[in-house]
Nucleic acid binder design. Structure first.
Length: 469
DNA sequence: TGAAATGTTGGGGCG
DNA sequence: ACGCCCCAACATTTC
């Protein structure tokens, strides 16, 4: 009887379209393992830990049902895998590749160590449609502009998804941590109530999420910009943890009628690929601006303003609504992410790194590449970045994309009684309107922590100082 | 995947 | 009827 193959789960918490699992199952017995290894430079944030717990619970049930229970262990990945190989007599180990710089380095070492120990180690493509080293410009350089990247990506159809295994041959008697012992979920206080209301993590939840999205995909292109609607797919956390693969989603989108929102949706998938590719080729973007001249940028330091932003107390309703949605659900609507990010970086002149850290901790879809690349995009120091003079006006953005105030009223209920005409600028409400709505400005809802016009002028000055000197 | 400032045009009020 | 002005509406430029 051939020895079992260890399947090391990481950001691929699913049984369908899982190339590593598929390959292992074809060879014979499998030993699935997930290792809690928080040693890297970007340890999991609180919201991600919550999602991971839920997702592992589902994966564990699925694998047990298929016949190969999931082993949970914590510690240094290399040592754990070596020990497991010894315990099980496994002569091979497989996994699906991750592309964060520290993970690449770690996995390289593990692969070499394994092979030295006579254990065959093989990795597979699973979390990106295209390997970051596969798509290059005509001159052979990595893409730094989205449009040509997306053209190149569109011309290269991704592989078809693998089916889920029907049955696995597992091993019994191996020791495993309990999921609860990892304490991934909050207890006191339990801040995850809003998370549970909104999300069903795991592979089955991902497919249900797709089904719901498919019903509305024809209006995706328009409604994806309206935060009061459920217009976006909300698939991002599933993708971040690999509850579903981009190949599966691409394949599903291909089956929709062309000309529907499928094209816009695929474009968003390509944005994800673009960011991953940037991180691969420019591995320090989580910490350093891609455009080096930004190292000299005069960011302010203002812990009070930062806290006001984090807690949704800026006095700008659309900003506060977004930040509270994030805090409550672990997620924020895409349009509003751009508004709050622009507000932090331009109105408050606070470093994009502070926003990156906060999103990393609070988003259930936190992804190193997306987070770094998009914050740099907003700050103007990244690839294909927003020009420095593009400063969102939070009032206009609110009036344009939340015209009926559904979103602001949901997340900033203390001003819900204002009429639409002043909902996005409560400081302009008349005394009568404030009284009728039960609002005392500065007490029940903050006055704006910065004046838009002055903040805009200050940002333009600061950004201009980079250019002229 | 901006917003504000500036420029241009044309309808209409009015002497 | 005409010229003048105002200003909304749209276009262009600038940040």
């Amino acid at each position: 009887m051939p020895s079992s193959t260890i399947v090391w789960f990481r950001r691929d918490l699913r049984v369908a379209d899982n190339p590593a699992l598929h390959a292992a199952a074809a060879r014979g017995g499998v030993v699935p393992i997930y290792i809690l290894d928080n040693d890297g430079p970007w340890p999991l944030g609180g919201a991600s830990r919550w999602w991971l717990h839920e997702s592992l619970k589902v994966l564990s049930e699925q694998l047990s049902r298929l016949g190969a229970p999931l082993i949970l262990r914590h510690g240094a990945s290399g040592e754990i895998l070596r020990a497991l190989a010894e315990e099980t007599g496994s002569e091979s180990i497989v996994w699906n590749r991750c592309y964060e710089p520290a993970t690449i380095a770690r996995d390289k070492t593990i692969k070499a160590d394994m092979q030295e120990a006579g254990i065959a180690a093989e990795s597979f493509n699973a979390t990106l449609l295209h390997e970051p080293w596969d798509l290059k410009t005509q001159t052979g350089n990595p893409f730094k502009v989205f449009t040509p990247f997306s053209r190149a990506a569109m011309q290269r159809p991704p592989r078809a998804p693998y089916p889920a295994p029907q049955k696995l041959t597992g091993m019994t008697g191996l020791k495993s941590d309990t999921l609860a012992s990892w304490k991934l979920q909050p207890t006191s206080p339990d801040w995850a109530g809003g998370f549970r209301e909104m999300w069903t993590p795991g592979e089955t939840g991902a497919l249900a999420c797709w089904d719901e999205f498919r019903e509305n995909v024809s209006s995706y292109k328009v409604l994806r910009d309206i935060p009061g609607e459920t217009g976006t797919s909300r698939l991002s956390p599933y993708l971040a943890f690999g509850d579903v693969s981009p190949h599966q989603l691409w394949h599903l989108a291909q089956q929709l009628e062309p000309g529907t929102g499928a094209d816009s949706f695929k474009r968003q998938i390509i944005w994800r690929e673009f960011c991953a590719q940037l991180l691969y080729h420019f591995p320090n973007i989580p910490e350093e601006p891609l455009r080096a001249e930004f190292s000299a940028f005069p960011w302010r330091s203002d812990s009070k303003a930062l806290k006001g932003w984090q807690r949704g107390q800026t006095g700008y309703p659309i900003v506060d609504a977004g930040m509270r949605e994030l805090w409550h659900t672990g997620w924020m609507h895409n349009r509003v992410r751009m508004v709050v990010a622009s507000f932090l970086v331009k109105h408050l002149l606070l470093p994009w790194r502070a926003g990156e850290d906060w999103f990393w901790d609070t988003l259930v879809d936190a992804d190193l590449a997306n987070n770094a690349a998009n914050w740099q995009w907003v700050a103007g120091c990244g690839a294909d970045a927003a020009p420095y003079f593009r400063i969102f006006n939070p009032v206009l953005q609110g009036e344009k994309f939340d015209a009926d105030g559904v979103y602001v009223r949901r997340w900033v209920p203390e001003i819900a009684g204002l009429p639409d005409s002043v909902l996005h600028k409560p400081w302009e409400a008349t005394d009568g309107q404030l009284k009728a709505a039960g609002i005392v400005m500065g007490e029940t809802y903050p006055l704006p922590i910065v004046d838009h016009k002055a903040a805009r002028a200050r940002a333009l000055d600061a950004f201009a100082s980079l250019r002229g000197g």
